[in-house]
Every structure is written in structure tokens, then in C-alpha cells.
Design a protein around this nucleic acid. Structure first.
Lengths: 173, 173
DNA sequence: CTTGACCTGTTATGTCATAACATAGACAAG
DNA sequence: CTTGTCTATGTTATGACATAACAGGTCAAG
């Protein structure tokens, strides 16, 4: 369980150049392990949906996932995609990005965590950032008001390193 | 500009008993001042939309706002509400709560701030919590990855103090 | 082989959001 | 006063996202 052959820091992979085929495979493997541990059944549709999400470091709309599933011979009605995605989210294998009405694969399934998303408004890459300090600050703010936090969405829109650099250098046109 | 007759702490009002008529009036007045400062035109529909949002400390769907606007003699097609709400959001007089696909009045318009929402899943009250530390933590996490944060959504779902107490005491039924 | 739990698929519908176009007042330039 | 432009409001129509309700299929437990 500790032979994770992580190529780089895990957090923020979305923004670094990397061997994505490897990255996706490894994440899928971790997801399978996590599902097994939880006794969650990663059936063909669900697994395929996860693979689809893993193809890119961005968020996909449910209907986008649906089209790909349908192309692979699965059902072609919305609930097919929504159910698979719901399963993935419930089991911590994917996350919902509310700002985009879309879904993205979880990059470190198994570990319980509060996702913090960094969404590039130019290239639409989505990265999961380190959440612990944010969560702590949030808990503290909530506690001041006597509020009990159960679930959170933390999403930031902005520029990823690559697009930021482009914006700075290539303003000429 | 500094004669704010704030009845209580401003942050978290939603969860405290308070003179809401006063709270709403005062917030509306601050919103008007803020709009004036920005040179933003708080026209009748827009103003009415804001009043509607201010009636309760919860988030209202666009169509809910629309119905109320229509009842008051304004247009009854979706864009009427969406445009008014968009204006309010753009000008910092209201916020969008993505988790609920809904909108809520800003409780301290004028002050630039990153909203942090605490949403009670039982009574649906929505409070704006103190955001600064959360924002700082988020900025730090983003900076580690070279990401530039522009806008954020931070939303926590859970139990407000009142509903939490009820859940603890009144489990019998 | 029947039952019950769970998964997949369907039809139909509901909810949220916006594109594109039409009209009306505000106001400065002519 | 009129014309052009800007902004706001309103409309029709459509697009995008999401779920309720039901039908059939698999499979292990009894």
C-alpha cells in the first residue's frame, strides 16, 4: 500500500508536465484499491466513467461523460452518467466541481480529504490543492459561530502557472 | 460613512436572533451607498431583487426571485431575474451560492471580501463567515503550485447552532 | 427456484440558465 | 427638437443540467 510510484508531488499534478498515461493508470489503480477496501463495487460503467474522467486534468460535464459511455456501448440516457458519477463521488473517487457543473477524478482516492480546487479559467485545467490548512481555517471560522461543518466546496478560479506566464509575455498579439 | 448602526457582530447574523427588519434596512442602506460609490445604478428591479434577497437569511433560486418580481409588476421571464441578480453579484451586493444554485444578499456590501458561506442543511439558513484566514490559507496553497487566485467559492454545508442543538436534544420523536 | 438487494437501462419531466431580438427612456451632439 | 448612442427592461425560444419513476436483469442467500 505504500509502493505508490508517484512521479511527482501528487498535489497539483494537473499543472506540471508529466507522463499522464502513467499518472492516470496509477490513480485508477489506487481507486480500485480504495473501492475494494470500502466494499464498493467498481462495475464496468463506473470504472469506465472514472477512466474517462482520468483522461484529462479537467472537469467534464455529465453529458460529456454520457456521450463517451454511450459510444462505448453503455446506456445513453442521462441517469446512466449521473448514477455512475454519483457513485464515484460518494466513494471518494471523483469530485463535483460546482462552479463548472462538472466532475473530475479524485487524484488521491482513499485518503479522506476535503478537496480544494484550483480552476484555470483559460485552459480549464483543474488541480486539487493541499487542503488541510484551508480546512483548519474554515473550521475555526465556523466554530466561532457555533456552526458544525460536514461537507465543503472550496473552489478558486484563476490562472494556472502556464497560462499566467503566457498572459504576461504574450500580451502583444 | 462610519456611522454604521450595526446591531451585532455583522458576521454570522444569520444564526443569531435579531431585529431582522432593522438588519435588512441597514444592509440595504449600505448597499445603496456602495452602489453610489461605484457608480452602479440600483434601478427599481435591481433594488427590489435585493430587497427580496434581504427578506430572509437564506438563498433564493432565480425563479423564486423572478416570481416575486413578477408579482410586483416587473417582467416575468427568466432573464429579468438573472440580469438583476447578475448585476447584484457583479457589484458585490449579493452572492451566488453554487451548492444551492441560488443567490443570497451580501451582508456587508462595499467592503471587498471573499465570501465564505455556512449553509445549514436543516433550516437552510446561510451565513457569511469571517473569510480572511481562509483566504490566506487558500492563497498559500495556490501559491505553492504557482496558481493565481482571482475569484473563489467557499461553501460549507452542516448544522447551524440552533439545528445542531435540536438534533442533540430532540432525537426522541 | 424464489426472494431480496443491487445494478443497469428506459421514458418522461423538472429545474436552472442564456442567446437573440424588440422596445423604451436618458442624454449628449448636432 | 431631432438624431444617434447607451443602457435597461422586456420578450420568445432554446439550451444545459438533473432527477423521478418504472422495467428488466443478475446473483447470492435461503
Amino acid at each position: 500500500m505504500q509502493d505508490k510510484p508517484v512521479t511527482q508531488n501528487d498535489v497539483g499534478v494537473a499543472f506540471s508536465r508529466h507522463d499522464h498515461a502513467h499518472c492516470a493508470d496509477a490513480t485508477l489503480a489506487r481507486a480500485e484499491a480504495a473501492a475494494l477496501t470500502r466494499g464498493a463495487r467498481l462495475t464496468p460503467v463506473r470504472r469506465r466513467a472514472l477512466e474517462i474522467l482520468l483522461e484529462e486534468h479537467r472537469a467534464l460535464g455529465a453529458y460529456e461523460v454520457l456521450d463517451r459511455l454511450a459510444a462505448d456501448g453503455f446506456g445513453k440516457q442521462p441517469p446512466v452518467a449521473y448514477r455512475a458519477l454519483e457513485f464515484l463521488v460518494e466513494n471518494g473517487l471523483a469530485h463535483r466541481v460546482r462552479r463548472l457543473n462538472a466532475f473530475t477524478a479524485c487524484m488521491h482516492p482513499g485518503e479522506t480529504h476535503m478537496p480544494v480546487f484550483l480552476i484555470c479559467r483559460v485552459c480549464h485545467a483543474v488541480a486539487e490543492a493541499s487542503a488541510t490548512p484551508v480546512r483548519a481555517a474554515l473550521d475555526r471560522a465556523a466554530a466561532e459561530l457555533g456552526f458544525t461543518v460536514e461537507r465543503t466546496n472550496v473552489e478558486a478560479l484563476g490562472l494556472c502557472p502556464a497560462c499566467h506566464d503566457l498572459a504576461c509575455t504574450g500580451v502583444s498579439t
